[in-house]
């Protein structure tokens, strides 16, 4: 039992984290969302604030909310939060603290005859998330305004699958009034969600790799964050076992702080020489202890 828990430590952590940050159970039954003051603060991962259980705010939704407000042209508060989480954790957030990342992780566990290491065109597709951030999260909310000068959260409205899964579906299930208001936009968002759900069974974390603007933001901080990986050149033989274990297909021995690395730790576990280690280490690896 303990061994199994240890093997699936990250999944257990992700489940607990998601349960705690979405702990307003009453919301799921009553079709209501939490209205407490903690919602003035953003959680690090993609967690829709319209999820009935959400106790905090989604950083991307909040960023767009401030940008699309006619009083502001820049979102200092949320930008500061993103920079803080980025500088401390980098994409550790994606690997450990994102509910939609957890969903994709679980979907990838479903057996499928031919899993893909990456999508064709991955080399270029991985830059799509930066374009989505620039266009849907910044430019459109800031520039496309209604008659009173108010913008829209374009990413939330047209792309975000987290809002559909954690916000729309539970609310629709609990509230007939909300369900009755669903139209073409909901159909589109459901199609996006279904497409990503199916793709997640075949490819590891397609949304994080190609579409997530939050991942794009945190990826910039990966090389400088407090939590990063180091490769001991004296121990590393470039055997490639780390890359083989990496579901994001990163050459860890060459680029341990690649922008795509979500810090899942599979490479650390896979290295037979204990050459890869996080900058923040909780305990010594067995291989290191043996050497001593």
């Amino acid at each position: 039992m303990l061994k199994k828990l240890k093997e699936n430590g990250r999944t257990v952590f992700q489940l607990l984290y998601t349960a705690v940050t979405n702990g307003y159970i009453y919301g799921f039954f009553g079709g209501k969302i939490f209205k407490g003051k903690t919602k003035g603060f953003c959680v690090p991962g993609l967690n829709c604030y319209s999820c009935p259980g959400a106790l905090g705010s989604c950083p991307l939704g909040s960023f767009q909310a401030v940008l699309s407000d006619r009083k502001f042209k820049f979102a200092f508060y949320v930008a500061g939060i993103l920079m803080f989480f980025g500088a401390v954790f980098g994409r550790f957030v994606c690997g450990w603290l994102c509910p939609f990342g957890l969903v994709q992780d679980l979907l990838y566990k479903i057996p499928f005859p031919k899993k893909l290491r990456k999508l064709p065109g991955d080399k270029w597709l991985k830059y799509l998330k930066y374009v989505i951030f620039a266009v849907f999260v910044v430019l459109l909310p800031l520039t496309v305004l209604d008659i009173i000068g108010q913008g829209s959260p374009w990413f939330c409205k047209y792309i975000c699958p987290s809002g559909t899964l954690f916000g729309a579906l539970p609310l629709f299930a609990a509230d007939e009034g909300i369900r009755g208001a669903a139209g073409g936009l909901f159909g589109w968002k459901t199609a996006v969600l279904v497409f990503l759900v199916l793709l997640s069974v075949v490819v590891y974390r397609p949304f994080c790799r190609y579409l997530c603007p939050l991942g794009a933001v945190y990826s910039v901080f990966n090389p400088i964050a407090f939590y990063r990986y180091k490769v001991d050149a004296d121990k590393c033989t470039k055997c490639g076992k780390c890359q083989k274990a990496c579901k994001m297909d990163i050459k860890v021995y060459e680029k341990p702080n690649d922008p795509e690395c979500i810090r899942c730790g599979d490479c650390v576990k896979a290295c037979p020489y204990g050459a890869i280690c996080p900058s923040v280490k909780l305990k010594k690896k067995k291989s290191e202890e043996k050497q001593k």
């Binding site: 969302i33 939490f34 003035g40 939704g61 401030v66 508060y77 829209s152 959260p153 916000g167 909300i178």
Partner: peptide, 18 residues
Amino acid sequence: EIAVVLKKAVNICLECIG
């Protein structure tokens, strides 16, 4: 800006849920 975030977050975001 916190007030803007809070106001958005404590009301159901119609755009987010489609």
